[in-house]
Amino acid sequence: MEKAKYKCDLDTCFLCKTCVGDWKPAIELNKQNYRVKKGQDIFKEGDPVTGIYFVYEGFVKVHKKWDDEKDLIIRFAKKGDILGHLGLEGNFIYPVTATALDKVTVCFLPMDFFESSLNINHGFAVRLMRFFAGELQNSEKRMRNLAHMPVKGRVAQALITLKKQFGVNEDRVINIELAKQDLASFSGAAYESLFRTINDLVADNIISVAGKSISIKDDGKLLQLIQNNEY
């Protein structure tokens, strides 16, 4: 990562949207902006926590070692989203890795300032608590699906989740381009299984694929694949 002289609007990220107005000059004084190249890690699993990041531009994948050879993508982050919050647990070690999917700009806040922000901005603290609760629920459901749901259902769930988070354009193409390996990691599937499943969904006219772009043609059938296999 390299430091960037970047003029933040102080109105985009998770913190700036909920902090008291008088706190924004303090954020401006304490923040540091970094540019991150595609494929570069913002922080790595096992690194000591130095602070919290917010995405200002670009897309980031948050992933964790699944075994010696595989990664599981926990979630994706876009403009305004928080990164590094899972490291707030007592040992202050990042339990996940955050990697840029394209050219990314992040805003970094040192841990001592972030903790001061929590103490001063009660609205932000409450919102963060609710965010944690939502992430816990999603994580529990995800682990249950990984254990019991067939690959086709998990891929369908991944596509619906991506559509919900990033939206689609006028051609119904999901507004994020992903390598098939990343989609496999997000679905908790082997690459070969993901490849076969994508081909099946295309053959059934449920989705269409052009390179890294995926268009959803039949939301109802995707949702049916999820509902038929949920536990």
Rank of each mutant, 00 (worst) to 15 (best):
D22W: 08
K17P: 00
C19R: 01
F59Q: 12
Q32E: 15
K24A: 03
E28W: 05
K65M: 12
Q40R: 08
K37E: 14
T50M: 12
E57W: 01
F54S: 09
Q40N: 11
E28R: 12
F59T: 12
D67A: 09
K61C: 04
Y34M: 06
D47E: 15
Q32W: 00
L29M: 12
E28M: 09
K65V: 06
D47C: 04
G58S: 06
V20H: 10
F59I: 10
F54M: 07
F59Y: 15
G46R: 10
T18D: 03
N30W: 11
A26N: 11
K61Y: 07
D41W: 06
V55C: 07
Q40S: 13
K65S: 14
F54W: 10
L29K: 15
C19T: 04
K64V: 15
Y34I: 03
V60F: 02
N30I: 06
P48T: 14
G39C: 08
W66K: 15
D22M: 06
P48L: 14
C16K: 00
C16F: 02
A26S: 14
G58E: 02
Y34Q: 07
D47W: 07
D41I: 00
K31A: 14
V20N: 11
G51D: 09
I52Q: 06
I52W: 12
F54Y: 15
W23H: 00
K17R: 14
G58H: 06
V36N: 04
Q40F: 03
I42H: 04
G39I: 01
D41Y: 13
V55M: 08
I27F: 00
G21Q: 10
W23P: 03
G46T: 07
F43D: 04
P48I: 12
V49E: 11
D41T: 11
R35N: 13
V20R: 09
D22Q: 07
P25C: 01
E45Q: 15
G46K: 07
I27P: 03
N30S: 13
V36L: 09
L29C: 06
I27M: 08
P25F: 02
Y56Q: 15
K61H: 09
K65W: 08
C19M: 11
K44D: 00
K17F: 00
Q32G: 02
K31D: 06
V60Q: 07
T18G: 00
G58P: 04
E28T: 02
Q32F: 02
N33F: 13
F43A: 04
A26F: 13
P48M: 12
D47K: 05
V49I: 14
C16D: 05
E57R: 14
Y53Q: 05
V62E: 13
I42C: 05
T18N: 04
G21P: 01
G39P: 02
F59S: 13
K31G: 00
K65R: 15
K61A: 02
P25A: 02
W23S: 02
D22H: 04
W23R: 03
G51V: 11
I27H: 00
P48C: 05
V62N: 09
H63S: 15
